[in-house]
Each structure stands twice: as structure tokens, then as C-alpha cells.
């Protein structure tokens, strides 16, 4: 691990100011950042510890939604009674991810910023445009079974690996931030993660030093909340394909896919076809997909996973 200096920030704007310096990074749970620092994929020169900033509460908003502090752990978010009752898709998605130990440490904000699990991103001997811009992409033409089928580019075919954000996308969550000047902004989750395009090293629309303070959920949607995750083992593995859905009794609803793209993949025009069945939805949601030989199985798998979700909603 490269050496770094460390500070424990006492207020959000001071933290943002400290992290705006080149080479500085925020650290919350640290479960992803430290893992990558050990293999020197991440080499921050300064860490700004945000654990004292008090963003560890879940509160009701005035319009009947929930405001989740950026530092609320995955476990505490999933276990919150209001989340379990009104936003079950979120509890199910979080509990489908990682392990108990990791969920006890991983934060809400950190989970949104989780980096890809593409094996070529992790292997510093291989070309990776995300890790080292301009070096190429060993995944293209390489072993790509886990990698993306849509929204990818000729520079990078990695996926966003998380589960929580897929549920948040279905719920139309909004990410709140503050910057070094004390300026606050709200970013709808649809605009938070970027498609790779020519700059796969830039994964979100956050600016250097911009600090996530909370994630808000609009008022509850009702309906059945489901999260189906297909993976290589029954627990503690990344998704090959996942489906987050909220389905109403009349068969309409919302659906987003994980494990397939650089961001949680939701196409509103596709979910409008939910009453016509899974195949209609995925045909539209994955229009223009560019799978590899290795991962083209993800397309029929997405249809079948969604069919399973629709069947569970009817049960």
C-alpha cells in the first residue's frame, strides 16, 4: 500500500475542502477503497475520514419519503422498519449483496461509489482504460463472462457491480451532496452514474471533493417489492444478472437490472410493457445490446429472471 496522510474531518464543508486537493479521497467504511489500495489500484496520498460527520440517521422527509444519511451502514439501512415495510426492494437488494461483515461496515454513500469488479481492473499487469486511461482494455476479447452487455463502449465493458443502487434506481432515489464552497446539490440517481463512453475512468458525475451527505427516497410506491439475483453461488457473490422490481396489483410497475451495464439499467419505455410479460420488457430494455460470446447468456437470463419476478408478484 502506498503511504498516505490521514485526517478525521469534523464538519462536512471542511471535509469537502480537504478532499478537493489532488490525490485526496474520502474514506467511510473503507471496504472497497482499502481492498483496492492494497493492490495499488487506488493510490490516494491523503485520506479524509468522514465517520464523525453525523450522517448516520434515517429520517422522514416532509413529503412522506425517507432521508438516509450517507454513513448509514448497509445493515442498518436494510434493517430499518420503515425501509422493510415501505421499500422492501431496497432491503432485499442490500441483503443480497456482500457478507454480513461487509454490510456492517459498508456505507450508503460508499456503496453508490463501489468500483467495478472487472478482473482486468484488479489485475495491474493487464491493460485497463479505467485504471490507466489510454492503456487499452484487456477485457474486450478476454474473459468477459461477468462483464457488461449494454451501455458499454469500445473502451470499457465493465459493469457497476452493486445491488443497493439497482433498488434505489427503481425507487427514483436522489443523491444529496455538498462541495468545498458549501454549495449543495441534488442528483437524481439516473444522472449519478455515467456510461463509460471514451472516459471509463470517470464513473460518476460527482466532482473532486464533492461529498455525498444523504440519499432521499420519494414517498412509498406500494406494490410488491422484489429483488432477484442470479449468481454463481447461493450467497456472497456478484450478480450475473439481478432484477429489482416494484409491481402493482394491475401488473404495471417499475424494473431495473443489475450486473449488465455501467449503471443500474432501467428503461422506462421498457417497464411500461410489464403487463405484456418479461420478454416484451427485456426486448425493449436490452435493445442495442452488445454482448460478447462469453456473456450473451445474460440476455435470456435477464428475461427469465424477470419472468420469475413477475410470477412471484402474482403469487
Amino acid at each position: 500500500m502506498k503511504a498516505f496522510t490521514y485526517e478525521r474531518a469534523k464538519d462536512p464543508v471542511a471535509a469537502a475542502r480537504a478532499a478537493a486537493r489532488p490525490g485526496a479521497r474520502f474514506i467511510a467504511g473503507g471496504t472497497n477503497l482499502l481492498d483496492l489500495m492494497k493492490i495499488e489500484v487506488e493510490t490516494p496520498s491523503h485520506l479524509v475520514d468522514v465517520q464523525d460527520l453525523g450522517f448516520d440517521r434515517i429520517e422522514k422527509t416532509r413529503d412522506g419519503g425517507l432521508r438516509i444519511g450517507a454513513l448509514v451502514t448497509n445493515t442498518n439501512l436494510a434493517a430499518d422498519e420503515r425501509v422493510r415495510r415501505d421499500y422492501g426492494v431496497l432491503t432485499r437488494a442490500i441483503m443480497a449483496g456482500a457478507s454480513g461483515q461487509l454490510r456492517n461496515k459498508a456505507s450508503t454513500a460508499g456503496n453508490l461509489l463501489q468500483r467495478t469488479r472487472c478482473p482486468y481492473f484488479y489485475d495491474t499487469n493487464m491493460a485497463c482504460n479505467k485504471r490507466k486511461p489510454g492503456s487499452g482494455c484487456s477485457a474486450i476479447g478476454g474473459v468477459s463472462r461477468q462483464l457488461g452487455v449494454i451501455g458499454v463502449s469500445d473502451k470499457c465493458i465493465a459493469t457497476f457491480p452493486g445491488d443497493m443502487a439497482v433498488a434505489m434506481r427503481v425507487l427514483d432515489a436522489v443523491i444529496e451532496t455538498v462541495d468545498a464552497n458549501g454549495q449543495q446539490r441534488s442528483i437524481p440517481i439516473v444522472d449519478f452514474h455515467r456510461l463509460w463512453g471514451d472516459r471509463p475512468e470517470i464513473e460518476t458525475n460527482l466532482r473532486q471533493g464533492e461529498l455525498i451527505t444523504a440519499v432521499t427516497l420519494p414517498r412509498p410506491l406500494g406494490g410488491k417489492h422484489l429483488y432477484e439475483k442470479v449468481r454463481d453461488r447461493a450467497s456472497y457473490a456478484y450478480a450475473l444478472v439481478s432484477v429489482a422490481a416494484v409491481i402493482q396489483s394491475d401488473g404495471t410497475g417499475r424494473v431495473a437490472f443489475g450486473g449488465v451495464a455501467p449503471k443500474p439499467w432501467r428503461v422506462e419505455a421498457a417497464e411500461a410493457l410489464l403487463p405484456r410479460g418479461a420478454a416484451a420488457v427485456t426486448a425493449r430494455a436490452f435493445q442495442g445490446a452488445t454482448p460478447t460470446e462469453d456473456n450473451k447468456f445474460k440476455l435470456p437470463l435477464a428475461t427469465r429472471a424477470l419472468a420469475s419476478v413477475i410470477a412471484q408478484a402474482k403469487a
Binding site: 478482473p119 476479447g141 478476454g142 474473459v143
Partner: peptide
């Protein structure tokens, strides 16, 4: 070992 195919397909940077 997971990346063997890639080593064949593209030169090591």
C-alpha cells in the same frame, strides 16, 4: 488463469 485468453488476444501493456 482467468485471463489466459486475453493474454493471447492482446499484448501485455
Amino acid at each position: 488463469s482467468a485471463a489466459t485468453a486475453a493474454i493471447v488476444a492482446s499484448p501485455i501493456p
